[in-house]
Amino acid sequence: MCDTTKTPKVATGDRAILPEGARTIPIFVMGKKYEVPETLTIMKAMEFAGFRFLRGAGCRGGICGACPTVYRMAGDYKLHFGLACQTVVEANMYLAQIPFFPANRASFKLEEMEGVAETIHALYPELFRCVACNLCTKACPMDVDVLGYVSAMKQGNIEKAARISFDCIQCGLCASRCMGEIPQYHAAQLARRIFARYIQPQAEHLKNRVMEIEGGKYDPMLDELSGMKKEDLEARYVAREREPDLAAAGTWQPKDTSHL
């Protein structure tokens, strides 16, 4: 039985601790052995071991692409890829972070482009060096079908490339594995921007609203609210009508239309 009068040692913030009786496992950071608590992520296990990140840590939530990591298990030839903040340590894991990998990015002026694939081909001719080995897809920690979107770009299907690549966090692991030396994630970014600007229809209702705002239509209303007594503002707040949850887009109108 543990002593109940003693405050249990509790992890605070992001600092991990080794609670009494918890198991540790050996991991090898760039070949060097450390004993760390099981269940920790690679990132927190390294911090537990005494590392302090400068590169190789960002959002710590699996979305920024700062902590791509490559690892192997002792005795196994197979390479694995993951994010240090999302991958749990395993005993006898040999790991190294690849926080940066050089990749060419082509500069462009979106406003002078058209929604055609030739634009992408001209800026990234190396796309045609792809030999479809699929190492890029295998390396992707977000399970993006990288080869799929590279192929879509080659075939001229910008929408398909944009949609397949949407979950990309631009960590660069694909580029690090590419035999054709293709900067896949930069090309995908270009495809998404071209798609959103030139292929996906633009929002007409938004254009009208922008014109109304620039014409000063709402300035008097906002001035009125800004100058109101708190009680009057509260009354207006309480009197708001709520758009029904299931109203189809652009169909519902409030009873009071004087502030639209």
Binding site: F195, A196, Q200, L222, S226
Partner: peptide
Amino acid sequence: AALAKDAPLSIAWLEKLGMMFNKHEDGRT
């Protein structure tokens, strides 16, 4: 007031920069 007034302008700016908003088929956000 600044936030409420500029908000639609921000969306229009991001759309023009090529941001992929969730949209209906006709382009409405």
